[in-house]
């Protein structure tokens, strides 16, 4: 059943697909409460389905050895609590691109445009992925606020 959750190039899941994925993960967790992958998939599906409050509740009971600080911070960001999101991001020991990406968005929400600009400049310099165009658009938005 987990194979259905496997992403493929032509698969563009809807919120409904993620609702189904949550159900599959719940089934798997009922069979094996220690299934860390099912738990991880459930958290991702909850975020993608927009169930941010429920997701934070789930993460409070994270018994697994999984680093889900990014997902936790993202939920707080979407629930319009950028300060809490920032607090979680500040606690990340080895931040990756995704953490800095979210930090930039949190700084934008906090209207800290100069810091936001610096984070985007660093991400754009150091990253080479399929989101370069979106980042440059975001950087333009930040620059417009600085002008």
């Amino acid at each position: 059943e987990l194979a259905a959750l496997r992403p493929s190039a032509d698969f563009d899941p809807t919120a409904d697909d993620y609702e189904k994925a949550i159900k599959v993960c719940n089934k798997l967790l009922n069979l094996d409460a220690h299934d860390a992958t099912a738990y991880h998939c459930k958290i991702v599906a909850m975020v993608q389905a927009g169930k941010f409050q429920d997701c934070i509740k789930q993460l409070e009971n994270n018994k697994f050895d999984l680093d889900l600080q990014f997902e936790d911070a993202y939920c707080h960001y979407r629930l319009n609590d950028p300060l809490k999101a920032m607090k979680i991001l500040d606690g990340v020991i080895n931040p990756q691109v995704k953490h800095n990406e979210l930090r930039a968005q949190v700084l934008y929400r906090l209207e800290q445009y100069e810091n936001c600009f610096t984070v985007y400049r660093d991400i754009i310099r150091s990253s080479d992925d399929k989101y370069e165009t979106e980042r440059k658009t975001n950087l333009s938005a930040v620059t417009a606020q600085l002008a």
Partner: peptide, 21 residues
Amino acid sequence: KPLFYDVALYHVEMPSLDHKL
């Protein structure tokens, strides 16, 4: 309001399931 993408959402990704399949 200027266009601003939620790129962080794209980083919320399913874990690798290869070891499970």
